[in-house]
């Protein structure tokens, strides 16, 4: 239900600013939702997310699973007749969700992203084995994929030791702002 009294016009303003995309241009043609390969796992279709933002329905948009399920594949963006950068909108909503401290609908996905950045901060590159081990530990899901992981090690799809950059301090401006 749309409760106009609780709508927040600031939402579309914030999203517009950080995604550099004017959502007022959206025609609700639904091309984005119809072509999204992951729409089945989303609670709102991408066009519904756009509508939520237009209407300023912040809690619904920021607490949605969709913004975390979206992988940013750009399938929707190439189909959009109005050249709306839908993945950039999803990025903006995720950042707003983290800033505003709402409940995160897909905490496992957030954990995974954090593990990736942890690895990049530490080595300058991603160390897939460590990312997966830490991720599995945090999600308390140690044994699924274990056989697969061993097979990957055997095939050297996963390296035991990380590939690192030499000058890790050269990355300071990235992580220390």
């Amino acid at each position: 239900m749309i409760d106009l009294d609780s709508c927040d016009p600031k939402l579309s303003h914030d999203v517009h600013r950080s995604s550099r995309t004017d959502l007022a241009a959206c025609l609700q043609c639904k091309s984005c939702g119809n072509g999204c390969p992951f729409v089945g796992a989303m609670d709102f279709t991408p066009n519904q997310i756009i509508r939520l933002v237009q209407l300023g329905m912040a809690p619904q948009a920021l607490e949605s699973a969709t913004i975390w399920i979206c992988v940013g594949c750009n399938t929707c963006a190439v189909n959009c007749p109005m050249a709306i950068d839908i993945p950039a909108v999803m990025d903006a909503l995720r950042h707003l969700a983290l800033e505003s401290g709402v409940t995160i609908a897909e905490p496992d996905i957030l954990r995974f992203h954090r593990e990736v950045l942890h690895s990049v901060k530490r080595y300058g590159r991603t160390h897939k084995l460590e990312i997966m081990m830490r991720y599995k530990l945090r999600t308390l899901d140690l044994f699924s994929d274990l056989g697969m992981g061993l097979n990957m090690l055997k095939k050297r799809k996963l390296d035991l030791t990380p590939s690192k950059i030499n000058d890790i301090h050269h990355l300071d401006p990235v992580f220390k702002g």
């Binding site: 990025d91 990049v120 590159r125």
Partner: peptide
């Protein structure tokens, strides 16, 4: 020489500053 990770989807997903600066280096 000494290239770093571009940030992949994860930097984009949760940290716009890091996402912008990793490829810059």
């Amino acid at each position: 020489p000494d290239w770093n990770c571009c940030g992949s989807s994860s930097a984009h997903a949760i940290d716009p500053t890091v996402a912008a600066l990793l490829p810059q280096r």
